[in-house]
Amino acid sequence: MAAVQTSGEKALNRVAIVAVLVITLIFLAPIYWIVSTSFKPRNLSTTIPPTIVFTPEVSPFVKLFTKRSQLREPPTAEEYAAAPWWERMVFDGGEKVVRDGKGNVQWSAYPNRFMNSLIVAITSTVLAVSMGTITAYGFSRFRVKGEADMLFFILSTRMLPPVVVAIPMFLMYRAVGLNDTHWGLIILYTAFNLSFSVWLMKGFIDEIPKEYEEAALVDGYTRMEAFFKIVIPEAATGIAATAVFCFITAWNEYAFALIMTNRRAQTAPPFIPSQVGSGLPDWTVIAAGTFLFLLPVAIFTFLLRNHLLRGMSFGAIRK
């Protein structure tokens, strides 16, 4: 009887393993499709049936970063021979790289939007995490009247639908000239991440034994010194994890960026879809832009893997 059960269990386990592998493949397929499309020549990106096996090339990335225009006639042999390898790829695609009067290559808007995303995400993360850490310490170590209500208030600001907040913010920003500026987005993302950062950091700081600081205070540290020299180093992992979460949230955000920016401060998430205009989009360029945009988040996800549960539950579930 027992032996039968074990072999049944074994078979069941094998079925589970196969099922997990199949599900993993299905879940990763869209991501694989983005990555593979970003290495396809344009004519293979929209074929019937879809092209799965092909020789990868980097032309989508060359096109992603350069401003191009349609070629009216094919380049002359000299032009082609004089062009660097990457420019030939653009020629091969029936386009040419736009140059200014001095012959300098013109960049596309992508690097600029990518930089905007970096500036906004990094600045707002630094602000949200530093404010969040000290506030979390305040809630963790001191008795605050109405603490539960205040923490609920803080969290509820995170739950507001972006469009609801965006309507008055748009009007206010318009009045003070913050529309389409980095600071406009930085403030919004800081406010959005602050609540998250307070909740998550409170969990991390709660775990640091109070005795550490008390010992330091007895040794003659002031409360401030104890905070900076004892608590902050102890909380370093938590701070790093919180920062990565805040960065990813700000990096990925779409609705605020769509409403509050249009050119100067526009970040990548509203920019990338705007490339799909009328007509047949060049999916290889979109895929290349998407791939580079997703890469930092994918790397961070791996670094963060042991903290994902905690972060996604606002610090409630620790395991």
Partner: peptide
């Protein structure tokens, strides 16, 4: 970790690509 990847990505940017899918 691989299975968790989709939820970390930008809904707008990845969502756009589902148009092609």
């Amino acid at each position: 970790t691989l299975l968790l990847l989709p939820m970390m990505l930008s809904m707008a940017v990845v969502g756009l690509f589902w148009k092609l899918l």
